[in-house]
Design a protein around this nucleic acid. Structure first.
Lengths: 228, 228
DNA sequence: TTCATAGTTCGATGCTAATCAAAGCATCAC
DNA sequence: GTGATGCTTTGATTAGCATCGAACTATGAA
């Protein structure tokens, strides 16, 4: 018995409310300082510092020193993916943090998941890319097709730069709200960045919400048409 | 802030060593009794009972009453998937439970993940199915192609029966040891059952290990050839 | 019926870990 | 330098919870 890796430490780290708040805040993909995270978690700086040390030690967070600030980010996309999976279980079981408000609806419509687009809009994009034959399952998992590369060129994504790093181009990430896959990986990140750069969408400050402009929404829908 | 579902309860449930042992044991996909799980977790029946109640309450387990026994199983494939993700993080960070022994190697070669085949062998099968065009990404995620259906017919899988339930036919599950996808979903389950039925492989009692017979291994490799 | 086995509930115990205030470092501004 | 800000360390306090033995309930066997 007792087969397989021991995940108790990781689970314990995620199981404390203050630490869960910290992790949730970092799901926005932004680097936040220790003080910001303390406020986010609703604890004093001392307590937060202790939590952050543990999270870093446990491999969930990375710490970057910059002047007298310490910035924290999630350690990897895999960590983000696991957190989304946990949120999925929680949502499934009715552990929503708040009553469904307008904010919650916006979250479900479009939000940041670590560094890529999630929510209904993210799922819509994923399905459109698949249906259009722009991404397809290859021997190494999901990958960009030639047709897909063409589309990205047309949109103006710097594919050559993306190709340089060895990280996977496409990854699936299970969306906690829509309960379907959306696109993660380098491409997912690049697309979200692109939408922000060209002004189709912008993040609502201090939240994970992404808000599309009317024009941006129209352009997005034209590019990634809804599937039945 | 505090956006998204609150996963602290779920994480806390997974974060206790006794409960983690219980969950790990149930990753074998078998239904185990309260006493068996108590032994597995290394605690008394009283303690285990308390843990099992909490796990059921938290939606991670299902309880089935049968005579004077209570059988427990994981509540869903999604729960299994989340646990695998946590194991992936843990393995990545060196929290292996034991030093790499022969048992560990067997686990990495072929094991049960909830109800389907995982480990190198599971990954091999997944890649072969994808390369051979037997499964492909469709609008609703991974799906069996016509060519794939043909293969399954040839193997003798009861596709009609499978098609009846509304659960997804194919799902990807990230393998904690190989760090690649293997096949879950109804098809994944049916294939593993098939291998056992036709005697290609058998479970090692009281473990998650699956051991292939020499003949079974040969047949498996012929059907699902290793990819580069 | 009587005994044995499976599981749950209860109460007591003890340990772990979250928390904060205060003091200590480190960095920046002046 | 002096003061201010950001963060960490230390030590004391406290609350929660895992644990077990023992009593209790339910099912099955003889």
């Amino acid at each position: 018995m007792k087969e397989g890796p021991d995940f108790t430490q990781i689970a314990t780290l995620m199981g404390d409310p203050a630490r869960a708040n910290i992790l949730t805040a970092l799901m926005s993909g932004r680097a936040l300082t220790a003080s910001e995270l303390a406020a986010e978690a609703g604890v004093t700086a001392a307590t937060a510092s202790s939590h952050l040390a543990k999270l870093e030690q446990g491999g969930l967070l990375l710490r970057r020193k910059q002047g007298r600030h310490r910035y924290f980010v999630l350690a990897s996309e895999e960590v983000a993916h696991t957190i989304e999976a946990m949120m999925g279980l929680a949502a499934n079981h009715g552990h929503l943090r708040t009553r469904q408000g307008p904010k919650d609806i916006e979250l479900r419509t479009a939000r940041v998941c670590y560094n890529h687009l999630a929510g209904d809009t993210g799922v819509q994009m994923f399905r459109a890319l698949v249906s259009g034959g722009h991404i397809a399952t290859g021997a190494n998992g999901l990958d960009l097709t030639a047709k897909g590369a063409e589309l990205m060129q047309r949109l103006g994504l710097p594919l050559e730069t993306l190709a340089k790093s060895r990280a996977p181009m496409c990854r699936e990430c299970l969306d906690w709200s829509a309960r379907r896959s959306h696109l993660a990986g380098k491409l997912g990140r690049a697309l979200l960045t692109h939408f922000e750069t060209v002004g189709w969408a912008a993040r609502v400050p201090d939240t994970r919400i992404i808000r599309f402009t009317p024009k941006g929404r129209a352009a997005f829908d034209a590019t990634f048409a809804k599937q039945d």
